[in-house]
């Protein structure tokens, strides 16, 4: 019983870490209709930001978030201006391969600048945990979980409560109608992209006490995040959060029962099954999956 609880707790914690990455991805996906393959690289840059601030100035990663987020936000604006903006309305191959190219570019820029060394942050709370009965909950994982879920919910509130958030949603639903309503679609795209990648950067910084950083660290996370985005339903922020927790659970349960390697197969198969049987995702609105390409 305790074992089962522990497996569930660990799975949920890992899922929480995926949530913030997936939320940004689903937002870009839903609003810009862009599959952002470079999303993991922004997380990787966030991790490096946190690592270097810790290594050079002894700044705690939870504080460096406040420097990392604006920096990655700025990088997001720049990226949108140089690349993403030009892919809007372009053939799908342009959209996919522009972000893939960006991913290759950023990954290897990190390799060139930071080398392939694996770097880790060690803090006072590294390796610490809270005990709830027999169940142990890692403190850094718990903090990441709380921050990630909190930010994801804040984003959701921002989208549904604020004027600009509503403009974003309107643009997601119908670009042309939104433009007719006087919404500056270009600006919405730019802000959405920058906010979403800043989220990935934030996740990188808060995950730094848990995971080591190296140039390719983003790839595995982003692939998992894609699975989550589709499970959760295109553009659905809450769906992404729930799906992230679900994927964390699947990983942990299948990992325990069958083996770590098969956990990955399990969620990829789940992913293909959902795509085929319910392409709007587990929590998405029907019709949202109809891709309005070029």
């Amino acid at each position: 019983m305790d074992l089962a609880l522990q497996i569930i707790a660990s799975g949920l914690l890992t899922g929480g870490i995926y949530a913030l990455l997936a939320v940004g991805l689903t937002l870009i996906f839903g609003v810009l209709r862009v599959v952002n393959f470079a999303h993991g690289e922004f997380m990787m840059l966030g991790m490096y930001g946190a690592f270097w601030m810790w290594a050079l100035w002894d700044i705690d990663p939870y504080l460096s978030v406040f420097a990392v987020v604006p920096a990655i936000f700025g990088l997001g604006l720049l990226t949108d201006r140089l690349i993403i903006k030009r892919t809007i309305g372009a053939p799908e191959v342009t959209v996919v391969f522009a972000t893939l190219g960006l991913s290759i570019l950023l990954q290897n820029a990190a390799l060139t600048v930071f080398s392939a060394d694996t770097r880790s942050v060690t803090t006072g709370y590294t390796g610490t945990a809270l005990s709830f009965g027999e169940v142990r909950v890692s403190i850094p994982m718990l903090i990441s979980f709380v921050v990630a879920i909190g930010l994801a919910l804040a984003l959701w509130a921002f989208l549904s409560r604020t004027r600009f958030g509503k403009a974003i949603q309107a643009t997601a639903q119908n670009r042309d109608a939104a433009a007719l309503m006087g919404i500056n679609v270009q600006r919405v795209y730019m802000m959405t992209y920058a906010i979403a990648v800043a989220g990935a950067g934030a996740m990188g910084a808060i995950a730094a006490p848990v995971f080591s950083v190296y140039p390719r660290v983003g790839l595995s996370f982003v692939i998992t995040a894609f699975v989550i985005v589709v499970l959760g339903g295109l553009g659905s922020v809450l769906g992404a959060v729930i799906a992230a927790l679900l994927v964390g659970l699947v990983q942990s349960v299948v990992g325990f029962l069958v083996g770590a390697a098969w956990a990955e197969i399990a969620y990829f198969v789940l992913f293909i099954a959902v795509l085929v049987l319910r392409p709007q995702g587990l929590f998405g609105r029907r019709g949202a999956e109809v891709y309005q390409g070029a």
Binding site: I7, T14, R216, L219, S220, S252, G259, A261, E264
Partner: peptide, 15 residues
């Protein structure tokens, strides 16, 4: 066995 590039949680193995 596991994939060193993608593993993000060892708790099932450790348990």
């Amino acid at each position: 066995s596991y994939d060193a590039g993608t593993i993000s949680d060892f708790s099932s193995t450790l348990l």
